[in-house]
Structures are given as C-alpha cells and as structure tokens.
C-alpha cells in the first residue's frame, strides 16, 4: 500500500522529530540537567516510524531502554516526554519513570523498558488482550539484537505461535548489545531465522530504508489483524551514539558513528527518495524541519522551566506505604 503525500509528510515529521529530539538530548545531557541514564535512538528512526505509522492508539507496543523513538512514533507528547527526561512533575509519568520508563497507556505505549528482553512477554499479553476481547487490534514488541538472546524472547515467540496471537516481533539489530557486537553475541548470526524457527513468517529488511520497513510492517500487521497470527521482522540498522550518553565507546572504532551518519542515514535516504521521485518538495520538508526545530527548542525551554514533583508525590501512586 503506497502512502499518500499527506502520510509521507507525517512520516517525515515523525522521523525528523525523533532525530532532533535525540540530537538535542545528546547536547542537553552534557549540562548535567538530565538525571540518570539516557539511551538515544538516533539512526534508527525509520524502524519505529515505519512500524508505528501502521498502528492506531488502540494498538499496543512494548519498547526498549532505547525507547524515545518508539514513544514519538506512537504519538506521545514530545514536550511531556522532554519534561519526563528532566524529572519534572508535568512529565509523561509525573517524573517517576524517566527516560527508561516513558509510557503512555492512552497511546498504547506500554513503556520503554529498562530490562533487556522486557517487552516481548508484555507485548504478547497486549496481543492476548486484543484477541480475548475480540478486537482487530495488534501488539508490537520492539527488541534489540541483545534482547533477542533472552529467554523471555524465545518463550514469547513460542507462546505467540501456540496461542496464534496478533503480535509482531520487531528486532532492531543495531549491531551492539551494549558494548558487545551482535556478530559475537548472536550465536547463529540470524535473529530473524530464530523467529522463523518458532513457526512464524519472518522478513529481513534494511532498517535505514523507511519504505522497506513500512512495507514489511504493513504486511505483518495486516496478517495479525486478520487473525492469522504472529510475524517477525529483523531490521538491520545503525546506532549513531553510544550505548548510553557518556559512553566512551572504546569498543567502537573512532568516528564510526559519524561515518554511519554520513552513509546510512534513514532521513537522508527518505529525503533523497521522495525528492528524487518528485512526491515531496524541498520546501515542504524544510518547512517541517523548521517547525520541528522550534518544537524541540520550546520543549527544552519548557522542560527546564517546569516544576519538579513535590516531595509529597513520593508516596502517591502506590497502594500503601510503610
């Protein structure tokens, strides 16, 4: 299914929002005003966007510790996200979750998840929920190459096949499980093949090619909506930044991230293709760039100015405190 012009502009807006958000967080993080750990999604925008543009708020996704991109692609409020990163009361989780646990149940965003391999069991649960309630909703589990080795992942792949759940397992293979290469830690070197071995259709795509991701996702999601069970997608992709912000990346050859940015940039690919075939114009895309730059500027200014939670909030949102 080809996307119309309006849809393409929306897709570009999403990818550009993720990119600018992450690049800006990279900068802001150096000021020391963002507490805790931050893991950036820059370079992987085409996957979250290519999958989530086929979903509605009723569909659920489970995410990873590198979850900002999934949040934005699923429609979470960018300013509330930025406030959450700064630990502010008006943050998406009231300042109680932070970067690694941003969630928005109303958007079907079941949370970034700081446990590697955390999302597959939750995603099959959301898929079961849709199946039991008789909706045509689906669930997507985003996992990295690192999570693909976890037992939770294998168990969930099997469960999804056994119960024929409307679940799509998306493996974002960015080549690193923290500071260890996928070439080493994925024993067979074939993440998608493992999923297929559990008995579900599998597609491998270039994760920096939005159109390839979108096409594979649309097919898998369509299958799930029709009650035909789970599918898997393995997307090879690049991680511009380190595992976490502040990661000295000694395990990586110097300048690799910048080199990838120059050669394997999904946004540049998208721009080149849509401008090249004349579907979109530079003026339209530049206008979006300007709009996003302003949005992220505002998000940072507002997040910095926002109030921290009151100490009284420490004991709320839990059924009892001792």
């Amino acid at each position: 299914m080809a996307l119309d012009k309006e849809a393409l502009l929306a897709v570009y807006r999403t990818m550009q929002t993720i990119r600018v958000f992450e690049d800006r967080v990279h900068v802001e993080n150096t000021t020391g005003d963002i507490p805790g750990f931050v893991h950036l999604y820059a370079g992987e925008e085409a996957i979250a966007t290519g999958v989530c543009c086929n979903l509605t708020d009723a569909d659920a996704i489970g995410s990873t510790h590198r979850g900002h991109g999934h949040c934005i692609a699923k429609g979470c409020d960018v300013k509330a996200m930025m406030k959450e990163l700064f630990g502010k009361k008006e943050g998406l989780c009231g300042g109680k979750g932070g970067s690694m646990h941003i969630a928005d149940m109303e958007r079907g965003m079941l949370g970034a998840n700081a446990i590697v391999g955390g999302s597959p069991p939750l995603a099959i649960g959301a898929a079961l929920s849709h199946k039991t309630r008789g909706t045509d909703g689906v669930a997507v589990s985003f996992s990295g190459d690192g999570a693909s080795n976890q037992g939770t992942c294998f168990e969930s792949l099997n469960m999804a096949v056994v119960l024929k759940l409307p679940c799509i397992f998306v493996f974002e293979n960015n080549g690193f499980g923290e500071g260890t290469g996928a070439d080493y830690h994925v024993g067979s070197g074939d993440i998608g093949g493992r999923a297929a071995a559990f008995g579900m259709p599998m597609t491998k795509v270039d994760g920096v090619d939005f159109f390839a991701v979108q096409e594979a996702a649309a097919e898998a999601i369509g299958r799930a909506r029709r009650g035909e069970g789970p599918s898997a997608i393995e997307a090879d992709v690049v991680r511009f930044y380190g595992h976490y912000e502040g990661d000295p990346q000694g395990y990586r050859k110097k300048g690799e991230g910048d080199e990838m940015r120059a050669t394997r940039d999904c946004l540049k690919n998208f721009r080149d293709k849509t401008l090249g075939d004349g579907t979109l114009t530079a003026t339209e895309l530049d206008a979006i760039d300007a709009e996003i730059a302003q949005l992220i500027d505002e998000a940072v200014v507002e997040a910095r100015a926002a109030e921290f939670p009151s100490v009284n909030d420490l004991l709320t949102d839990v059924y009892i405190s001792y």
């Binding site: 079941l110 939750l122 099959i124 649960g125 959301a126 898929a127 079961l128 929920s129 669930a139 969930s156």
Partner: peptide, 20 residues
C-alpha cells in the same frame, strides 16, 4: 500455556495492563 513461566506471567502482566 507451554511450560514457560516468564512468558506466561509476563503475558498476563501485559494483558492486565491492556484491559483484561
């Protein structure tokens, strides 16, 4: 379910968070 407790309990958690 299969004898896979992580998937079974985790699935239940995910289902609980989404309406069941």
């Amino acid at each position: 379910t299969p004898i896979t407790e992580s998937a079974l309990v985790g699935m239940a958690a995910g289902a609980a968070a989404t309406g069941l």
